[in-house]
């Protein structure tokens, strides 16, 4: 890995990071999923987390969103040390996560999904009721902003396409005032058109000053929107590169751990 020198840890800060993860380790019994990963997110940037399947990307962002507690390591949120006991803590702090497989409940309506865990309420005769009217109106409005015209707020999420589901999840996070939006492989199951929609959405979200963590194992998707790139390989990070400092080939190499893929690429004519 001769190009290693291109990577350097951290950027000269032009803005203070919203969240800073230092030397995060996570063990599952005897499995070492993360062996000391450092990562930070600044407002208004898209920081890509790249890595092959099983590299530990999902595990890492789960320590950021309160799903897993790190075995070791420090988390600083807006400069202060922070420990998330459960996802609620992270959500309340402003970290919204769209998980890889489990973002939405297909049997539930878009509006019920949109407000899941954050239901608006009105009081009738002293009893709190779910304010469906508000929920429906907000959902329709936010979906329209994202370019999705629903048949109605009661439409089940199961009838939406993969890209639309990602968009609903992103819209939800933005609506609830997230400071950080984590997207775990939002494009991996999508077609070309849907992918470009999601990437455009990421760009829009970033412009609002939200820090986006974009996980992918697809270098082209990452390079299309990313400001910084961190590659994870077998639970370890090889540092962070800034846009323009690194070529797609170099990123690809780092993700796969180098040689074998380079050889394969040679034999396939550079199409991997």
């Amino acid at each position: 890995m001769s190009d290693d020198s291109r990577f350097h840890h951290g950027e000269p800060a032009n803005a203070a990071p919203i969240i800073e993860m230092k030397n995060i380790k996570k063990h599952f019994g005897r499995v070492i999923a993360l062996a000391g990963v450092s990562f930070d997110v600044k407002p208004g940037e898209c920081h890509c987390l790249l890595g092959d399947n099983g590299a530990g990307k999902s595990t890492f962002i789960k320590t950021m969103s309160g799903v897993h507690k790190p075995t070791a390591g420090e988390i600083y949120f807006e400069g202060k040390p922070m420990r998330f006991e459960d996802p609620r803590d992270a959500i309340e702090a402003g970290i919204a996560t769209v998980h890889q497989h489990l973002a939405m409940i297909p049997l539930m309506s878009v509006s019920r999904n949109f407000f899941m865990g954050n239901e608006p309420e009105t009081k009738v005769a002293g009893i709190s009721f779910f304010d469906k009217k508000t929920a429906d109106a907000v959902t329709m409005e936010e979906m329209r902003k994202m370019g999705i015209n629903l048949r109605g707020p009661d439409q089940a999420v199961g009838t939406l396409s993969g890209g639309e589901r990602q968009t609903v999840a992103i819209a939800r996070a933005v609506y609830f005032g997230a400071k950080i939006l984590i997207l775990d492989e939002p494009t991996s199951a999508l077609g070309v058109r849907q992918t470009s929609n999601v990437l455009a959405t990421i760009d829009r979200v970033r412009k609002q000053g939200i820090g986006v963590v974009f996980i992918s194992h697809n270098v082209r998707h990452a390079l299309a929107v990313g400001d910084r790139f961190t590659v994870l390989n077998r639970g370890q990070t090889l540092g962070t590169a800034t846009r323009g400092e690194i070529s797609p080939e170099e990123l690809q190499d780092l993700m796969a751990g180098g040689q074998e893929l380079a050889q394969l690429e040679g034999s396939l004519g550079g199409t991997v």
């Binding site: 609620r88 489990l102 049997l107 539930m108 899941m116 865990g117 009721f129 779910f130």
Partner: peptide, 24 residues
């Protein structure tokens, strides 16, 4: 008609997704 009702649907629809969204 209540928030809790939404949680019931969510807990049964996909417990993991519900948890990740902060549903107890």
């Amino acid at each position: 008609k209540t928030k809790f009702g939404n949680w019931i649907f969510a807990a049964g629809g996909d417990a993991e997704a519900a948890r990740n969204s902060g549903v107890p």
